[in-house]
Design a binder for these strands. Structure first.
Length: 464
RNA sequence: GGCGACGUGGUGAAGUGGUUCAACACGGAGGUCUGCAAAACCUCUAUUCAGCGGUUCGAAUCCGCUCGUCGCCUCCA
């Protein structure tokens, strides 16, 4: 894996053999996440799925930021509490994540429920002289006290354009580049009483406190988008290591941006798409997952209608093969070289993902197998048992990819009767009726194809 | 102004010194199969890897310069 801090690509060696601890920066629940956010979550999902598929135990923590300026503002505007607002959008996040087949993190800690560990962390920083208190009760991290500051982002603190980042209300800071750990009480803002006085936590401190609470002072992998490298992750390192004296994270993984219209997809720019809106517009969730996942994580993706169409076509190609294998029946001996073929595909798949999660090469291995299997289906060169073996093999790989149709995918109401009627019409060579029934099924989203194994169907378009 | 990433066919994209290295996917053209269709398969679709110069027996792959695109330095996945 390629570590942002060292800039090196090196083997992942978990602190505890066989157990990988991963922390991912999650959503701020002040509104629906956009698909650019989900790109980074799905990249972490791929990582987690792959490590587990490889037999490693994984503990995956993803934070939920449920208190910040935007949530406070949003709640005030909506005339509700920050709790209610966060609940609402966290629910939406979960729905979107499920639709995209994202693995549920083992723990989804919410910031407002971890005030105590944050306060304790800040107190330690105060005691060690890495933080200081200002007149309004806020507490800042003193960058000058941490010489390694800037190492992750390869930034020289002296070179920052400091003039542009001074916030109007932050008088009293010792240095304008120091960042807030704890924000003093203000009218109209939620306040927590804590061992360091009243106030609310700053953003960076929540990830440090919660990651260390669940994963320990040192853990293996921390993920996020490249835009979090500075200052968010830089600050996390500084305050965590200043507090514990231990190395915070073994490997930093950052995924590149999803772009739309040549620019990074971002709420502030307005060039965003949201998951439910795309699904409501008829986009297939699996195609969307494929589009967000099929490019290497350190490579920017340009999101376009064409990219989504191409992803849909690639997924349909897999669907067609699965349908063909499920329908396939041929009474003949098992193919002698099948296990060798599958073994080779698996070897290529593993080699690709072992290499810094090279998903493109892994998919290439899958599609090479797809072509070969299609060839053999056309040649009737497989036994019925072979077809089952291949299906099992593909479903096993799909524990990593999660793009195949559900095994339980079911027909829409009424489709069964239409299929039976069409089968009967075909038996009596009534082509007109057969074609009419095929059209009817198409309007239900069921594609019917005629093969030597009889007619077979698959669900097309939106939905699953 | 500082720091960094990237530039491969019609499109997306792997490949980071030689041996089928120009994968794979999408799209396009032709063909096979089929009652028709769909799917699938076969053939073709980059003598070339932004441009220029250099290193080398040999470079898309290393070095330098130029041009271009994007990102971070501010909330941000």
């Amino acid at each position: 894996m390629t570590d942002t801090l060292s800039g090196q690509t090196r083997p992942l060696v978990p602190l505890e053999p066989g157990h990988v601890r991963i922390y991912s920066c999650g959503p701020t629940v002040y509104g629906p996440a956009h698909i650019g956010n989900f790109r980074s979550f799905l990249f972490a999902d791929l990582l987690v799925r792959y490590l587990r598929w490889r037999g490693l135990r994984v503990t995956w923590v993803m934070n939920v930021t449920d208190v910040d300026d935007k949530i406070i503002r949003g709640a005030a505007e909506a005339g509700t509490t920050i709790e209610a607002l966060a609940d609402r959008w966290l629910e939406r996040f979960t729905e979107d994540a499920d639709a995209l087949r994202m693995t549920r993190p083992d723990i989804l800690p919410r910031a407002t429920r971890h005030i105590e560990p944050m306060a304790t962390l800040v107190r330690t920083l105060l005691e060690r002289g890495h933080a200081y208190r200002t007149e309004d009760g806020s507490i800042f991290f003193r960058i000058a006290s941490w010489p390694a500051y800037g190492a992750l982002a390869r930034i020289d603190p002296d070179q920052l354009r400091v003039g542009e980042r001074v916030e109007a209300d932050e008088y009293g800071k010792g240095d304008v580049r120091d960042f807030a750990r704890w924000k003093g009480p203000k009218p109209g803002e939620p306040v927590w009483e804590s061992e360091i006085g009243p106030g609310r936590p700053g953003w960076h401190v929540e990830c440090s406190a919660m990651s260390m609470q669940y994963l320990g002072a040192s853990f293996d992998i921390h993920t996020g988008g490249v835009d979090l490298i500075f200052p968010h992750h830089e600050d996390e390192i500084a305050q965590s290591e200043a507090a514990t004296g231990q190395r915070f994270v073994g490997t930093w993984l950052h995924c590149a941006h999803l772009r739309l219209g040549g620019a990074k997809m971002a709420k502030s720019t307005g060039n965003i798409h949201r998951v439910v809106e795309l699904l409501d517009a008829g986009v297939s969730a699996r195609a969307l997952r494929y589009a967000l996942l099929a490019v290497h994580y350190r490579q920017a993706i340009d999101y376009t209608d064409a990219s989504l169409t191409a992803a849909g076509a690639a997924v349909a190609r897999l669907d067609a093969l699965v349908a063909a294998l499920e329908a396939y029946a041929e009474d003949r001996p098992d193919a002698a070289d099948l296990s060798g073929l599958l073994h080779a595909a698996r070897t290529d798949f593993v080699a690709a993902l072992d290499d810094d999660l090279n998903i493109s090469a892994a998919l290439a291995a899958v599609f090479e197998l797809v072509r070969e299997v299609n060839r053999r289906i056309a040649d009737r060169g497989l036994s019925t048992g072979d077809a089952t073996t291949i299906l099992d093999f593909l479903r096993d790989l799909d524990r990593v990819l999660a793009i195949l149709p559900d095994a339980t995918e079911s027909l829409p109401a009424g489709a069964h009767a239409l299929l039976d009627a069409r089968e009967a019409a075909r038996m009596s060579r009534d082509w007109a009726a057969s074609d009419r029934l095929r059209d009817e099924l198409a309007t239900l989203g069921v594609a019917v194809e005629d093969t030597r194994d009889g007619q077979r169907w698959r669900i097309v378009g939106g939905g699953a």
